[in-house]
Amino acid sequence: MPTLIRLEDGAFVEAADPFTAVADDMPVPAEGAVVLPLARFEAEGAGLLDEGRPVGVLLQPDEAVEGLAYDLPRLALVALAFPKFRDGRAYSSAALLRSRLGFAGEIRAVGDVLREQARDMARCGFDAFVPSDGSGAADWTAAAGRYRHVYQTAADHRAPAFVERESE
């Protein structure tokens, strides 16, 4: 069972995962919360939502978040895939979900997810992580908290250096 780490009120905590990730070739379980790949969601999502089940969508890096705009208010989570940690497209996806599309639900990082990415992910608006390097909440807390300042505005609303300086 992979670890799920949630960022709640600024703290990384390990949490149970109520969602079942449904692979392309897997039947949707009869009940409970599910995360569907985009194509499956487009085909089956409406029905599941009508049943009142919590539904999330898994987006690959080349699948634009804008395509979800209509459904976002009904989605419980959006999972963004990192096929390789070097593939940085999902950072833009997360930033857009938060700052342009106003998504307030969970944004979950899945795939090649390493503790070294903790800070960048949190800054772009991710708030749930399924690490692939065996790291736990304590590692993520350490990695994300290593820097006392940030230089730019991002989805996490941390005050950037130029705002900190203003208030000095």
Binding site: Y91, D120, C124, Y151, Q152, A154, F162
Partner: peptide
Amino acid sequence: RQWSTFHPEFTYLP
């Protein structure tokens, strides 16, 4: 320099 240093969105560009 400041804007680009540890820019969270642009650290893993193509």
